[in-house]
Simulated assay, not measured.
Amino acid sequence: MSEALLQLSRASQLHPVCFNLPDLQMIGRPVARGGFADIWKGLVRGQTVCVKAMILFQRSDRRTVEQNIGHEAIIWRQLSHPNLLPFFGLYYQDERLCLVSPWMSSGNIREFLNSAPPYTDRVSLMLDIALGLEYLHRNGVVHGDLKGLNVLITPSRRACLADFGLSSISDAMTVQFADSDDENTSVGGTARYMAPELFSEPTRHFGSDVYAFACTCYEILTGKAPFYEIHHDMGVAMKVVRGERPSRPDTILPDDNLWLLIQDCWAQNSANRPSLTQVIQRLLSPAIGARETQSSTDWDDTFSAKFRRSLRDFPLLPSVTEIKQKLFCDGMCSAGWQSIPNISPLVENPTQMVQTTILDNIEKESINRLNIPRVSFT
């Protein structure tokens, strides 16, 4: 079903209307700027939300970015995991399309650890990240821009991933952006977390996510980005391509086995990097001893849908009249609808509209009468 929705969105260049959120109020000024978006705090009927407003320096960017955001929003909506940030919907602010998600008051993992007590279990936070990343990979999704700034802390002090898949939006921009700190954005990713192969062939994959995971673990241990001592991305890129990696933080690293895992994850050859399933097994092993967070659930599979439904009532199925209007022009509706084979029983029982044979009849008749191009879902 999700693949059909994705292909339909691509063909129509539209996104589901149920994603659009009404009555959203932006609060104050942007609280942060990322590589391709301003981050605002917002309110939706008393609920505090995070609003990521896309930056468009050229008007020609708008259509391309909207198409990419609609595509990524459909993917995001289909995913639900304790270590993934939920998706609430879309909103337009002065013609800028915004992605809306829950507001995480504890901020990103770097901010959280800067003020966290020294006994904070950093290794279990790494496990949280690995669990979320493994879920993405299991569902065929590459994160593409994993780093500390894109790992948020939930109310139960669990790490969750944000901005997964959105690197394609950055790729679509006609202007390259730079972050406000020492991490510059390049090729839809962040150079200090990019695997060596991405500097020559910028197609992100599961293995490049594993490399970025190792870099993020280094950041969790040290509080600093990889190669923090080098000011320019070009210098970082040259070191990474030559096979150099950040040096071991001996005064902070709790265990030799953890450092060995990090080294394996940022191996020069992507084929030598472990899968996320293997990473999780090693983190949970007695040698490292990471513990999965056993606190109350921050959200469940119905969290996002319940939020959107609380804003307005969505009918489970469109009415017969609405489907008529979508398929036929006004002059053909009355005669055209009644003459479609096997349609008349639907007027008395509209819930049967989801049956495959009926949908086939509607599609065939509409294609014949209106010369509508057929959309292939294979």
Results as ranks from 00 to 15, higher is better:
S2W: 10
L5V: 03
Q13R: 06
M26P: 01
V31E: 06
G34E: 11
G35S: 15
F36N: 11
L43P: 01
Q47H: 12
V51F: 13
F57W: 11
D61C: 13
T64I: 13
I69G: 02
S80H: 14
P82W: 14
F87Q: 07
G89A: 10
Y91L: 01
Y91F: 15
D94L: 06
R96N: 15
C98Y: 09
W103I: 15
S105R: 06
E111Y: 05
R122T: 14
V123N: 02
L131S: 05
L133D: 10
R138F: 08
N139T: 09
V142F: 09
H143W: 12
D145T: 08
L146F: 06
G148C: 10
L152P: 07
T154R: 02
R157T: 01
G165C: 07
M173T: 13
T174I: 12
D181V: 00
D182R: 04
T190D: 13
M194H: 03
M194C: 03
T203M: 02
F206C: 03
D209I: 11
D209R: 04
T216H: 04
E219Y: 09
E219C: 08
L221F: 12
M234F: 15
V240Q: 07
G243L: 13
G243W: 15
R248Y: 11
D250M: 06
L260R: 03
D264H: 04
N269A: 13
R273P: 05
R273M: 04
P274H: 09
P274K: 03
L276S: 07
Q281I: 00
S285M: 05
P286Q: 10
I288A: 00
T297D: 13
D301F: 10
R312L: 06
P315R: 06
P315W: 12
L316Y: 02
L316G: 00
L317H: 06
T321W: 02
P341W: 07
S344M: 14
N349W: 05
P350Q: 10
Q352C: 03
Q355L: 11
Q355G: 03
Q355K: 06
T357I: 05
T357H: 14
I358H: 04
N361V: 00
E365I: 00
N371P: 00
I372D: 04
F377L: 13
T378S: 10
